[in-house]
Nucleic acid binder design. Structure first.
Lengths: 182, 182
DNA sequence: CTTACCATGTAAGGCGTTACATGATTCA
DNA sequence: TGAATCATGTAACGCCTTACATGGTAAG
């Protein structure tokens, strides 16, 4: 239990909520989790096999499965593993924003170029913010349906809060650059 | 010029400002850049050799060098490469917060545990925020000394803005959890 | 004289992406 | 019937971290 592979924990976390195929896990990563965690098929499928090998997940091959889908579910062992990992202190929070890197070296390209990087960043945030707000609304409406929604909402609100701060910064940063330019 | 290795660009960016040893580059990464980019010796030294091999940087082995230090400087080629990279649109901004991941699966550990993760996060932010504010002050005072300071300040202010948003979120998130608990 | 920091590097191994390969099903 | 999406996987490769290995110098 020294250094857990995060991909294992994420998959177990998703399986703790519902049984899923590898494909569906990928979809969750591309939607609900994309703001703070991502993964590709090339890491998901091997991880699933590994989890089954370690007895933390199982293939439930029975039932309503017309296609040759493989539906995975978490085992009691897996649930225990997940609970232990969640209880452990956070090891690393990491942000890698290429936008900030290019801005840091912005002198090379000058203020106009820097502004265009900020614009692109702003556009992306402005596009994504409504999705987050929509997700928060949906979660708030269905709060009672599942205890997990409370925790999901927490992370969505983190996104909303930081995205709004980003937009404020974009405005001020551009103002600063254009003032300098004048 | 298809997909640049970021480590190369960061090193060239630092060298565009001043001549540095590998050790000093690492220090910059651990201080000024740590909030949005990191690297270890195991990536820095090989990258430096590679940059020299490609003619983008050179070892300046002359002069005020009592120790057996190797001071690197950027070449004209390197400067061109850097300018081209800075001009290119941003490919990826990525955030990987384990805190959010643990919170997302927070149902496993319950509200008290979730609160303690938020507390730890808050503590870290509260420790780092004054450093950012101090850095911003210093930069503002020495604005005229170097044109690059303007761009550095932009990134520091990004940090300040988002950290303040984080702290607000921490407060609200904890309030929400303790209200639920009651 | 010894601790802390300066300084450079390598080797092994982990982790994960990209690209590829394949095929079923649904819907227009 | 063709496009989009569902669905599973592998192989090659790249990148980086960790840990190790080594030694100089400054300060107390």
């Amino acid at each position: 239990m020294a250094t857990e592979k995060k991909i294992d924990c994420v998959i177990l976390g998703l399986l703790s909520h519902e049984n899923l195929t590898g494909y569906e896990i990928k979809k969750r990563m591309d939607t609900a989790l994309k703001y703070f965690w991502g993964a590709s098929y090339g890491s998901i499928y091997p991880a699933l096999s590994d989890l089954v090998g370690r007895g933390l997940a199982t293939k439930c091959e029975g039932a309503e499965n017309k296609r040759n889908k493989i539906i995975y579910s978490i085992t009691e062992e897996g649930r225990k593993y997940l609970r232990e990992w969640v209880a452990l202190p956070v090891e690393k929070d990491e942000l890698r924003y290429e936008t900030l890197l290019k801005l840091f070296f912005g002198k090379e390209g000058g203020p106009l170029q820097a502004e265009s990087h900020i614009d692109a960043f702003q556009k992306k945030i402005e596009e994504e913010l409504p999705c987050l707000i929509g997700a928060a609304d949906t979660l708030r409406e269905n709060m009672e349906l599942d205890e997990a929604h409370k925790y999901y909402l927490l992370t969505v609100e983190f996104g909303i809060k930081t995205y709004r701060a980003y937009l404020e910064w974009c405005k001020e940063a551009k103002a600063m650059l254009s003032k300098e330019r004048a």
